[in-house]
C-alpha cells in the first residue's frame, strides 16, 4: 500500500513540473549528428549488513553516445564494479543500445517536450561475481518537458531478468525482471535569465526512483529520494546526487540500501 502511495506521489510530481537532465532519471537527450558525449559516473553505496558482511560497494560507469542524426544515437556502457575493501575492481556487464527520440516539440527559446525510446542489451562480459551470465535485453521510455527555469522528466525502464548475480546489490541484479520508474524535477538556480551568449547554468534537482519486481505485485520493491545539484557549461557538465531510501519492502535477495552518492561528469565534443 505504501509503495502504491509512493508511486502516486511520484506521478503527481510528474504531472506538475517540467525538467532537465537529472542523474538517475533517463532523459530523452541525444548528441547531435556526428557528435560524441561521454558521461562518467562514480557511485558509492552503503548497504545494510548482509550474511557476507558487505557494507560498501562502488561503481564507475562510462557511457559513450554517438549521434547518428538529430533524433537517433547509439551508446555503449562500460561499468567497473568494486565490492569493498577486500575485493578489487572488475569489469561489469557491458551494455550496447540504440536510442530514438521519436517526439520533439520545441515551443519556445528554451521550452521543449521530448520523448525517447531506448533498446539494448547487456552482455555477459563481467567477472564471475558481477555478471548476469547471459545476454539480457532492456528497454527504456523517457519523457522530458522544460518550460523556462523548471522542468520535469520521467523514465520507465525494464531491466534485469538474467541469471542472478552471485551477490546482488541492485534491483537489476537479482535475476527478476525489474521495473524502474523514476521522476525528476530540476530548477535552474542560476542564471535566472540567460544572456545573449552561451553561459553555464546551475540546477537543483530532486528525483524519486522506484524499483519493483515486474512479475509479482508483492515482490521486492523500494523507493528512493535523491536530491542533487547539476552544473552545466557549454562543453561539459558535473552532477552530484545522494539517493536515500524512503521505503523498501520484501528485500530478500539483496541487502537494503542505506544510501548512494553519485558524482558524474559529462563531456560533449
Amino acid at each position: 500500500m505504501r509503495y502504491l502511495l509512493s508511486l502516486l506521489a511520484a506521478l503527481s510530481l510528474c504531472g506538475a513540473l517540467q525538467a532537465q537532465q537529472a542523474s538517475w532519471t533517463t532523459a530523452p537527450t541525444l548528441p547531435g549528428e556526428g557528435q560524441w558525449v561521454l558521461r562518467e559516473t562514480a557511485t558509492l553505496a552503503w548497504h545494510e549488513p548482509s550474511p557476507g558482511g558487505r557494507r560498501r560497494s562502488s561503481m564507475l560507469s562510462s557511457r559513450l553516445s554517438y549521434g547518428l542524426d538529430g533524433e537517433r544515437a547509439v551508446f555503449l556502457d562500460l561499468p567497473v564494479r568494486g565490492l569493498g575493501r577486500d575485493r578489487g575492481p572488475s569489469l561489469g556487464d557491458v551494455a550496447v543500445g540504440w536510442k530514438w527520440r521519436f517526439r520533439s516539440q520545441n515551443t519556445g527559446p528554451v521550452d521543449t517536450t521530448r520523448m525517447s525510446l531506448s533498446l539494448g542489451a547487456t552482455l555477459p562480459s563481467g567477472a564471475e561475481r558481477g555478471t548476469s551470465g547471459e545476454v539480457v535485453p532492456f528497454a527504456d521510455l523517457a519523457w522530458m518537458s522544460i518550460s523556462g527555469r523548471l522542468g520535469l522528466g520521467t523514465s520507465l525502464t525494464l531491466e534485469g531478468g538474467g541469471d542472478p548475480y552471485r551477490r546482488p546489490l541492485w534491483a537489476d541484479e537479482t535475476g527478476e525482471l525489474n521495473v524502474r520508474f523514476a521522476a525528476a524535477a530540476v530548477w535552474r538556480i542560476d542564471p535566472v535569465r540567460y544572456s545573449s551568449s552561451l553561459q553555464a547554468a546551475t540546477y537543483a534537482c530532486v528525483e524519486l526512483i522506484s524499483n519493483a519486481e515486474a512479475d509479482d505485485l508483492d515482490g521486492e520493491s523500494e523507493l528512493l529520494l535523491a536530491p542533487g545539484l547539476l552544473y552545466e557549461a557549454p562543453s561539459f557538465a558535473a552532477e552530484l546526487s545522494y539517493a536515500l531510501p524512503l521505503h523498501s519492502d520484501e528485500l530478500e535477495s539483496r541487502p537494503e540500501l542505506d544510501g548512494a552518492l553519485l558524482f558524474g561528469l559529462r563531456f560533449l565534443w
Binding site: Q20, Q21, T29, S104, N106, T107, G108, P109, V110, D111, T112, I146, G151, L198, Q199, A200, A201, E232, A233, P234, S235, F236, A237, R266, L268
Partner: peptide, 9 residues
C-alpha cells in the same frame, strides 16, 4: 526553439 540547456545549445 528548444535550446533548453547550455550543453545542448
Amino acid at each position: 526553439y528548444g535550446m533548453s540547456c547550455p550543453k545542448c545549445a
